[in-house]
């Protein structure tokens, strides 16, 4: 027998958390319930976050946007702030799972699952997101890259909850780009993915670039070297191809049921080359 609690506020949540140390937390349940079914083992207590009011908000606060951990993918996708300021995130969300999965799944769940294939993660890396972690008696903010420690592991400590994500508005990037290579066009786990933010001058010279790859390492992969190498070059086939070797050195993919490591490595480089087709057009999701 499993008991399920559904607190209405953080205060209620802390009470339950204290009482049931062994409880598991769920948001949309699209990761957790699949896992529990596979293990055929249910914990004595489950705590659902859907009713916790503090985790629901999406608000703009002095140049930044706060996304509550329980914001569903569907809600984010239809939110004007997200579409306007973070098209790279919107585009990743659009490719995540399927409509019912997006209706149920949350950004907090995607982050805490810490899968290298989590579609929300590469955009959050390039956007320099900070996650807000709360305990009963305090909170802290941690950059996303410090929060995700490995496949399935995060910096969450006992009794800590992810309360939300902070994103600085990044309107200076002229190109927001996300591409996921999956085995099909929907319901596809990333074989490899790329989130990219690029700013070019009027004449197409790269001023700044940020890249993050999914599914090509134990966590999301970034490469300062690749980004630096591109700066000052005209955004085109030649420049992009020139950084492919750097990209391929940065990633450390594995073979699995979906694809080989070699293919993933090639994709990591090639997905960058795709930007040549983007020209100087700002891409809006």
């Amino acid at each position: 027998m499993t008991t399920v609690y559904r607190p209405g506020s953080l205060d209620e949540f802390w009470d339950m958390r204290e009482k049931y140390g062994e409880a598991l937390v769920f948001a949309g349940g699209t990761d957790l319930f699949v896992k529990l079914r596979a293990l055929n083992k249910y914990p004595p207590v489950l705590i659902g976050l859907a009713g916790v009011k503090e985790l629901q908000s999406i608000e703009e606060l002095s140049g930044a946007v706060f996304i509550g951990a329980h914001a569903t993918h569907t809600r984010l996708l239809s939110h004007p702030r997200i579409r306007e300021h973070f098209p790279v995130l919107a585009s990743a969300l659009r490719s995540l799972g399927s409509p019912p999965i997006r209706n149920m799944g949350t950004i907090g769940g995607n982050i805490c699952t810490a899968s290298p294939a989590g579609d929300v993660l590469p955009p959050l890396y390039v956007l320099g997101a900070q996650v807000e972690l709360r305990k009963k008696d305090g909170s802290r903010r941690v950059p996303i890259r410090e929060f995700i420690l490995g496949p399935g592991t995060t910096a969450l400590t006992d009794g800590e909850l992810l309360s939300g994500v902070w994103l600085k508005k990044e309107d200076s990037f002229t190109i927001h780009h996300f591409e996921k290579v999956g085995q099909r066009k929907a319901l596809a786990i990333a074989v490899a993915s790329l989130a990219a933010l690029v700013t070019t001058t009027e004449t197409g010279i790269v001023e700044k670039a940020r890249f993050a790859w999914g599914s090509v390492g134990p966590t999301v992969v970034t490469s300062q070297d690749a980004e630096d190498a591109l700066v000052g070059l005209p955004l085109g086939l030649k420049a992009l191809q020139s950084i492919v070797p750097i990209v391929e050195r940065s990633v450390s993919p594995i073979d699995d049921v979906r694809a080989s490591a070699a293919y993933r490595k090639a994709l990591a480089g090639n997905l960058v080359v795709r930007l040549a087709g983007r020209g100087r057009e700002p891409l809006r999701a």
Binding site: R184, K185, A186
Partner: peptide, 11 residues
């Protein structure tokens, strides 16, 4: 069905 890939409506 997450590893044996049959076509969806988008494929």
């Amino acid at each position: 069905l997450s590893t044996y890939i049959i076509p969806t409506s988008m494929d």
